[in-house]
Amino acid sequence: MTDLESRILNFIQTQFPLVSRPFKVIAEKTGTTEEQVLAILRKLTGNGVLRTIRTVINWPKVGFSTLLVGVSVEPPFLDTVAEEINQYETVTHNYSREGERNLWFTLIYESEAEKTGLFAKVMSLPGVNDLREFPAEKTYKIGLVLDV
């Protein structure tokens, strides 16, 4: 990544301008042209560094709950269990991790029935030994900013 690419990426992670031509403002702040900013962002999207530019919604404020769930899966079944969980649109993140509780996913749901339905499905899958929910009691940081 070039110095300019890093500057643009760091800028848009923290202060995306809410104006009709935001990329022109970003260009002025990072010392280049609007065309160049757009070209760089297209390139960074193309090679996968930049996922998207979008609004980040505070789900509980619009009636949704979010939850971290940790599952213990027998290792040979890990991929198939993960793929089954991925089918749910309400599952936003799903990672395998070191340790006995080796599959961790996050869920956004509107009703308890959605959650219990998903849990029942997961518990019925071969290789799943345990599922536990880890609700957040306090949020200290939701940063999503990485110094690149």
Binding site: M1, T14, V49, R51, T52, T55, I57, N58, L144, V148
Partner: peptide
């Protein structure tokens, strides 16, 4: 929506593993 805390932010979302993490 931002002032009311419903939208946390509008921002570029970086894929950490592709950005070298």
């Amino acid at each position: 929506l931002m002032e009311r805390g419903i939208i946390r932010r509008i921002a570029g979302i970086v894929k950490h593993n592709k950005a070298g993490f």
